[in-house]
Simulated assay, not measured.
Amino acid sequence: MNWTDALAAYDRDLRARGSAERTRRAYGVDLGGFSEWAGEQGLDPGDVRHRDVRRYGAGLSNAGAAPATVARKLAAIRGLYGYLVRVEKVGSNPAELVSSPKRSEKLPTVLSTEQMRSLLERIPARTPLELRDRAMLELAYSCGLRCEEIVNLDEGALDFETEQLRVLGKGQKERLLPVGEPAQRALRRYLDKGRRALLADPREGALFLSKSGRRLSNSDVTRRLGLWTREAALAAGVSPHALRHSFATHLLEGGADLRTIQELLGHASISTTQVYTRVDAARLRDTYAASHPRA
């Protein structure tokens, strides 16, 4: 099997298992770089050994790649060879025992409850786009949604009777999420007055529409959040994912347990959710340092 066939087969497998297009594209870029390097070494997929993967990772680090970047590329190689082992094209996974470089402990951006209130309540409800943005960001914070999950919502996703939102997350995994009253009110206003005005084609099923009546993109959500972040005079760099981080951190501060937060966020592993315990501990240290007379 050559590299072209191996990468194409792996991409088909990822698609069949419900991986998002953006994830598949990122894997394609990372594996394309590795296959190009391996080809220059005269290596086909079946020729690659543990030492080759380790040498490739070391070369990336020596070239100045960040630890997170190297770790991501090694994970892509590990995933490819996991698939090739599964379909019996190779005998073992050469990336399995290659350790990823240690990443720096970078805590996620989190807005305070007051900052979140300021951000959301700063958005007026005069125009269809403002109604949309208020509903979209209220819902994102109320449910801790990923950006991809926001744009993929369809019109009937929220059941107002049960007060639950049906979300399709990573790997096409569905989850039902409770929705707070402010988000429900904002969404009702948008559906009654905003979406109808934006709708150009009755066949369009997306919940949140652009000004031309089409489904929003991830960049649309990021751009609109940036606009309202500036209006609320918050620090730059607030991404849609910061609303998700804030959702999880505020739940933890309010007494929710990690398992519940894991379910709400749709994390496959509790270890992913544990980053919020570090955020909470960091906040406690900052509060202590600022408040205690002998800190």
Score class of each variant (00 low, 15 high):
Arg166Val: 08
Asn218Pro: 05
Ile270Ser: 11
Gly213Ser: 03
Ile270Met: 14
Leu252Val: 07
Ser99Met: 03
Phe34Ile: 01
Leu264Met: 14
Leu111His: 11
Val167Lys: 11
Pro124Arg: 00
Gly28Thr: 12
Pro108Tyr: 13
Asp5Lys: 09
Arg175Ala: 12
Glu204Met: 11
Lys193Ala: 11
Arg215Glu: 01
Arg24Pro: 03
Glu96Gln: 11
Asp13Cys: 06
Gly156Asp: 01
Ser291Tyr: 09
Gly266His: 10
Val29Phe: 14
Glu253Thr: 05
Lys89Glu: 13
Ser217Phe: 13
Ala282Ser: 15
Ser99Arg: 14
Ala8Ile: 02
Arg294Val: 07
Val179His: 08
Ala183Val: 12
Glu138Thr: 06
Glu130Tyr: 04
Ala9Gln: 01
Thr249Gly: 07
Val85Gly: 00
Glu121Leu: 09
Val53Ala: 15
Val151Cys: 02
Asp154Trp: 00
Arg223Ser: 13
Asp30Asn: 11
Ala186Gly: 07
Leu216Tyr: 10
Ala66Glu: 15
Leu137Ile: 08
Glu148Asp: 07
Ala268Gly: 07
Asp201Asn: 14
Gly59Val: 04
Ala38Val: 07
Asn218Ile: 15
Leu80Trp: 06
Arg278Trp: 10
Arg25Ser: 15
Ser118Val: 05
Leu264Phe: 10
Thr249Ala: 11
Tyr288Asn: 02
Lys73Arg: 15
Asp5Leu: 12
Leu120Cys: 00
Cys143Ala: 15
